[in-house]
Design a protein around this nucleic acid. Structure first.
Ligand SMILES: [Zn+2]
Length: 297
DNA sequence: CGGGTATCCTGATAGC
DNA sequence: TGCTATCAGGATACCC
């Protein structure tokens, strides 16, 4: 469900409901949802702690606790959701963890597929160390991106999905960015020129910013804002989920590929396969003597 | 190092 | 209609 724009929306909407409240208790309904310590250890750290502030880093939602009690980091993965409810409201389906809060509220973490995590840590930097830059940060330049992409040879799409390179993109926004940039997802990253990386940088930031304005993208039951509304950016998709439909740019039918085990939507005309080689082929088969060859298409 | 695959889970829906 | 196969906004641990 959640990529940078959805997570940003969740943080903005959830913040007023939790900041300045004190955690009174922890209810855990799926053990593996909680990480970063045993339940007892985490409970000892957070119960009685006040939530000082909340913010987003990459796809993490961060609840910073006051008085050196560490932080709770929430990752929604595929189907996670957060809602603030009144204590007396009945529990909804798929609640995996719930924090009792002061003021008669609670914070529910729901997650159909159970991939999401609520992670406690003494210092969030432990987790953030391995993350790349925020794509919307003022100091994230096209030059930074150029270096990050061209300093190694990787397939372009998996590289953009790699959170250590740029933090926050997922399958939707990578497909949209590549379409807008006219680049094939299998392009070898070290073959990108300045003009290419410049376009990726510009388009990525424009698309993410616009998607935040739209409060993210919804196209099934999973992603809802904490206020319960679907996002609106799906109405502006040019690539994601549009396979079999005409390209908005040239009219050609979009196709769907699989890249890095992810559904990948491309216009075969606007995003031509790189002429040269794509990413390193493994050139096994030292020499074919052809003695055993049978069928050869 | 880079890329492919399996794994964690459940439910919606496409296809027969 | 009913059953089964496929797929899903993520990330990571292995294997070659
Ligand atoms: Zn096109």
């Amino acid at each position: 469900m959640p990529e940078l724009p959805e997570v940003e929306t969740v943080v903005r909407q959830i913040a007023p409901g939790v900041e300045k409240r004190t955690i009174r208790g922890l209810d855990l309904y799926w053990a593996r949802t909680l990480s970063g310590g045993t339940r007892a250890r985490v409970e000892r750290a957070i119960v009685g702690a006040r939530i000082a502030r909340s913010y987003r880093r990459a796809k993490w939602i961060v609840f910073e606790l006051a008085a050196g009690r560490g932080a709770l980091l929430v990752h929604l993965r595929m189907t996670g959701r957060l809602f603030v409810r009144a204590t007396k409201e009945p529990a909804s389906d798929y609640v995996r963890l719930s924090l009792a809060l002061s003021g008669g509220k609670r914070l529910d973490f729901e997650d159909v597929r159970k991939f999401g995590r609520v992670h406690w840590c003494a210092d969030p930097n432990e987790v953030f160390e391995s993350l790349g830059p925020e794509p919307l940060a003022d100091d994230f330049t096209a030059e930074d991106l150029h270096m990050a992409l061209t300093s190694r040879r990787r397939m372009l799409k998996p590289l953009l999905l790699d959170q250590t390179v740029v933090a926050g993109l997922g399958n939707i926004y990578v497909d949209e960015t590549l379409f807008a940039s006219g680049l094939h997802p299998l392009t070898a990253s070290d073959r990108l020129g300045r003009a290419d990386t410049e376009r990726i940088h510009t388009n990525m930031r424009r698309i993410l910013a616009r998607a935040i304005e739209c409060q993210g993208s919804s196209f099934d039951v999973f992603y809802r804002t904490p206020e319960g509304q679907p996002g609106r950016f799906q109405d502006e998709f040019l690539a994601y989920g549009r396979d079999g439909r005409p390209c908005r740019n040239c009219g050609t039918e979009l196709i769907k590929l699989t890249v890095a085990q992810r559904g990948t939507h491309v216009c075969p005309v606007c995003q031509p396969k790189p002429r040269r080689r794509r990413v390193a082929k493994k050139k096994r088969t030292a020499r074919r003597t052809d003695t055993t060859s049978t069928s050869r298409p």
